[in-house]
Simulated assay, not measured.
Amino acid sequence: MNSARSDPPPDATEEHDDRADGPRVALKILVAGGFGVGKTTMVGAVSEIRPLRTEEALTDASIGVDDLDGLGSKTTTTVAMDFGRITLRDGVAIYLFGTPGQERFWFMWNELSRGALGAVVLADTRRLMASFASIDYFEQKGTPFVVAVNCFDDADRYDPPEIRMALDIDPHVPVLLCDARQTVSAKQVLVALVEHALRLASGPSSTSPRAWRTPAPTRDG
């Protein structure tokens, strides 16, 4: 008997090849900021995979070492990094690395920042000073970054121009308001960072000296 093997439909072959090839573009982004500002929350909110977390419980040994002012409900801390992944359209995959916030773990930042397209610096208006270390670090390294203010329920609300002035941020650096718990809000921050980094890579003439802003999120939904 002479049997012939039929080829799979073209669309099935293409689908298989896409899965085998994986994302066509991979971008590395850091999520940085002070202790307890919401980095782990943001990575978890957008990650399409189960995020890797290196959280440990806070103990009495951290008393006098970690600044817990305004963080009465904080019971854990990231000791190495958070990791997540989100795939955008056109085969663009973003790999997210959340940095540890406490000063004693800052030695990890140099390793985590290698090859990064840019960084999101999360800020909390109740503890703005905690953002200075991250901003200084990325400014000194020349790493593109945006500042995203995580709008906590009990925090005072300020417009981006006021936050820019308080943090002494250069005019071209995007400043946004966000809710790190909401997937859509967190994605908007990532998109703003990618677009900002691409503008900087295109040259100084393409950088727009204005503050980026998303509508102030609500905590009701």
Rank of each mutant, 00 (worst) to 15 (best):
T87G: 04
L52P: 01
V175L: 11
L190G: 07
C178E: 06
T87C: 09
V191P: 00
T13H: 09
E139H: 07
T143C: 06
S62R: 03
A45Q: 04
G72E: 14
G38Y: 09
W109N: 13
A93G: 02
F145R: 04
A61Q: 11
L122T: 08
M81I: 00
K28L: 10
L71P: 02
P9F: 11
L167H: 10
T59N: 05
T214R: 01
D11S: 14
S206L: 06
A155Y: 05
K39N: 05
Q140T: 11
D11N: 12
R53Y: 02
T143P: 03
P174I: 00
T13P: 00
E111A: 14
Q102S: 06
D66I: 04
F97L: 14
V121K: 09
C151N: 09
A216W: 04
G38K: 07
L122A: 09
P8Y: 11
T40W: 01
V92R: 12
D21A: 11
T218M: 03
G38N: 07
E48M: 13
R127D: 04
T78S: 08
T125V: 10
S134N: 07
K74L: 15
A180S: 15
I49A: 12
F107N: 10
L122E: 08
Y137N: 14
T76S: 02
V46P: 10
T218V: 05
R114P: 01
A116D: 08
S205N: 03
F97T: 08
A201Q: 11
D154R: 14
D168F: 02
F105R: 00
A20W: 09
L112A: 06
F35G: 03
H16L: 14
L58F: 04
G221F: 05
L176N: 09
P9R: 15
R127Y: 06
P9E: 15
N110K: 12
K141Q: 13
K39Q: 03
D11W: 14
M108R: 12
